[in-house]
Simulated scan of single mutants.
Amino acid sequence: MHLIDLLHFLFDSPIDLTRCRVGLQTKVPRKGGVEVKVDDHAFVSGLLEDGPSFTLTASKATRPEHTGFTLALSGSRGDLVHHSQDGPVLHARTGVDWEPVKVLGPGRLADPAGEVPGWADSFVDQLHAWAGAVTGSRPPASVADFDTGYRAQRVLEELLRGGGRV
């Protein structure tokens, strides 16, 4: 869901649900002697209505160097890849060579291994935004609203409904 939100935020383009492929897998069927009943590896690939193709991957059951979240986009002007283990760096290519692009400054709190960069600080930022909104001392600058969350939830529901399942 967070990666779908990120696509919407970065590109302000709807996802073409008719051209998506979805894969949900349970790669670790038992943990601690108990049957696992949730997926631990998922991917969605498809197109945004405005053009770029994308692949989203979230996995907690793969080789340690691949565990986490991956966002990969390819468009007519270049490519963009980010893996949560790369921290606040994404990789962009507009020609032949890939260039690292730092997207966040130093964090106040350490993120857990494999989490999206800034994950730990996001909770602190959220609390400050809520407190400022309640007291009126700091109105929210740009906060996701109900419609934003509902938009991503509708995409997720349609993808899970079975369209394009592999």
Rank of each mutant, 00 (worst) to 15 (best):
V155P: 02
D147C: 03
S84Q: 00
L73N: 05
G107Q: 11
A144S: 13
P140M: 07
D50L: 10
G23Q: 13
A129Q: 13
H128N: 10
E49P: 01
T55E: 13
V166S: 11
E99Q: 14
S45F: 00
D86S: 13
R138V: 09
K31R: 14
T55I: 14
R30F: 13
D5C: 06
S53D: 13
F69G: 04
V101K: 05
V22W: 09
V34N: 10
G164W: 01
K60S: 14
G107A: 15
T57Q: 11
A113K: 12
D145A: 11
C20H: 02
R154H: 08
K27F: 03
R30Q: 13
R93D: 04
G32I: 01
L24K: 09
K31T: 10
A58L: 09
R19G: 05
V124N: 06
D147M: 07
L24M: 11
T67P: 04
R63N: 11
P88T: 01
A144D: 13
L56T: 03
T26N: 15
V81S: 08
F123S: 12
D145Q: 13
S74N: 12
K37Q: 12
E49R: 14
G164I: 04
H83M: 05
L104R: 05
T62P: 01
S13L: 02
D5A: 08
S74V: 13
G114V: 04
S13F: 03
L73W: 05
L90W: 15
V143D: 11
W119E: 06
T135Y: 05
A113G: 01
V89P: 00
D12M: 07
K31I: 12
V166A: 12
A144C: 07
A144F: 12
G105R: 06
T148C: 09
G164F: 03
E35V: 14
I15K: 05
R154N: 13
H8K: 10
P88R: 00
P14T: 04
D111R: 00
A133S: 14
T70S: 11
R138C: 07
A131Y: 09
V116R: 01
E99I: 07
F43W: 15
E49C: 11
A72R: 14
P88H: 00
W119H: 13
S142D: 15
G75D: 06
P140K: 07
R19K: 15
L71Y: 03
R30M: 10
V36E: 10
D86T: 00
Q126D: 08
A144N: 11
V22M: 09
G136T: 06
H128C: 10
H128Y: 10
L159N: 05
T62R: 11
S76M: 08
D111Y: 00
K60H: 12
G32F: 06
D125Q: 12
V81F: 02
T70W: 02
G105A: 10
F123C: 05
G87M: 01
L7I: 05
R151V: 03
